[in-house]
Design a protein around this nucleic acid. Structure first.
Lengths: 273, 273
DNA sequence: CGCCATTTGTACGTATGTATT
DNA sequence: CAATACATACGTACAAATGGC
């Protein structure tokens, strides 16, 4: 009945000085057409310019720093941020960590989106992948092979770089960053799960080789199949874990924001540390 | 050569009390398995519990509030946030507003992602759309028609609700929220552009009707075609605007994070307000 | 209705650590 | 090393909003 958005009206009456300051800083960046890395006025200057105290300026700057709109270097100054998706990563990662019972669902959704992005762009990826890109991808798989089981860190880094290199030639910064952001979230959340068998490194390497092979042959269908094969075991493990814990509800169709499962609400919680 | 991530190492040496406090609050939420809406300790309690001053507590809370991990109600208290994607919207919107010359590119990328999501999930959408969903979609288009040109606000709200209803039955909260987040970003950024002809309301309504029709007939290909037809004019306008301003570079292949276009860097900028 | 307790918002002052020059 | 500029952190006081009495 009411198609308007549910939220977004909490402090609309009074924008709260801090938000005004934040908006002023954003306007300053926009009006002066600053680019990432450009210096911003110091806190003291902002105080006098905006007529607010340090507290408000600092809080506002911190909020902008979280959004990667501003970057603060201690003892150096504040600068225009890189406008990345770090906030998305942090927010999604926390969401994933928060619902450990329903956690598998969040991760499953994440994998689904990653697969959707890469498979949906398969044809365009194949069309834009240059021979040097293919060589680079092969090199990354080789490096994964070298790291093997010794260096899990490096192994993961190669995996990330592989998917980065896969999307990069498309020239769409947004999809590249989104894809990597989801990769990061998965890397953060997955280790905190129980019941997930460890990554199968040999299988992962084989999957990536199959992906490169299909790409080299220009076989779009094979490319999609290889990608699906790469994500399939993860999806299966997630599905198994969900059914094992009995936390599965296939026909959810919730409002995607409210959690209907209502347990007791702690009126006053325990110790904090 | 170095496949590790470029950023994320600014204050790794010294986690800066504020971040420690933020982590402590997040841990508190996680350890006590709180849900959105649950109350959190007051700032004073956090001060004594974490042994930090109120300034630090406040700054930490504000950063968490930006990420929608925490919600602050003045004169009331702080509560667990809704864990939405508001940070993504704000960050992407600012990015879009910041590069007005290259702006069309950001919006074009945005549209591409929206189309990718909806088209890539077309078959699954058709499989899960119930008759009542189709009726609701038709009702939304009718409402769009009613609002017409009088109420642009309501028209946009119906458009948003339409795409929301389209994705909702899938049961994947992440894709639903992502889709809507991108819609929001577009709605924020698009009005600030020049050279973009106004939305064609009649055409938009016809597009949505075609989408519902294809969905009702279970025609996946027609569904995808209808969606593409919906986004096509926007893409074309964006492409025209980009070529018109001469800001087009088809074979970009940048690193997706650094802006190679380097102009002069203002050492010290002008007035702020 | 006013009053009051609680809680967050804003302001100011001061001291300390850090990086640059 | 000293001087400077900046960010960090703490403490206190008051203002404003909310909810219950």
């Amino acid at each position: 009945m009411n198609p308007s958005r549910p939220q977004e009206f909490r402090t609309a009456v009074r924008p709260s000085l801090r938000q005004e300051v934040a908006e002023a800083i954003k306007s300053y960046i926009l009006d002066n057409r600053l680019k990432p890395g450009d210096p911003l006025p110091s806190e003291a200057e902002l105080c006098t310019a905006l007529g607010a105290s340090r507290s408000s300026i600092r809080e506002a700057v911190k909020t902008l720093a979280v959004l990667d709109i501003v970057e603060v270097r201690r003892g150096h100054g504040t600068y225009v941020g890189r406008l990345g998706l770090s906030a998305l990563v942090e927010g999604l990662a926390f969401r994933g960590l928060l619902s450990p019972k329903d956690d598998f669902r969040v991760l499953a959704e994440l994998i689904e989106v990653r697969e959707l992005i890469e498979c949906g762009l398969a044809e365009r990826i194949l069309a834009t992948l240059a021979p040097e890109d293919l060589d680079a991808l092969d090199g990354l798989v080789d490096e994964m092979d070298l790291r093997g089981a010794h260096d899990g860190e490096g192994f993961a880094a190669c995996d990330r770089a592989f998917h980065e290199r896969l999307m990069e030639p498309l020239g769409n910064r947004l999809v590249s960053q989104l894809s990597l952001a989801f990769w990061d979230v998965y890397a953060i959340v997955a280790p905190h799960l129980q019941g997930l068998t460890a990554e199968d490194e040999a299988g992962t390497i084989a999957d990536h080789r199959a992906i490169v092979r299909a790409a080299r042959e220009g076989d779009a269908q094979g490319f999609v199949r290889a990608l699906a094969g790469h994500y399939a075991p993860v999806r299966r493990r997630l599905a198994d874990a969900r059914t094992a814990t009995g936390a599965a509800d296939a026909t959810d169709s919730g409002t995607a924001d409210t959690d209907p499962a209502g347990a007791e609400v702690p009126e006053k919680a325990a110790s904090i540390a």
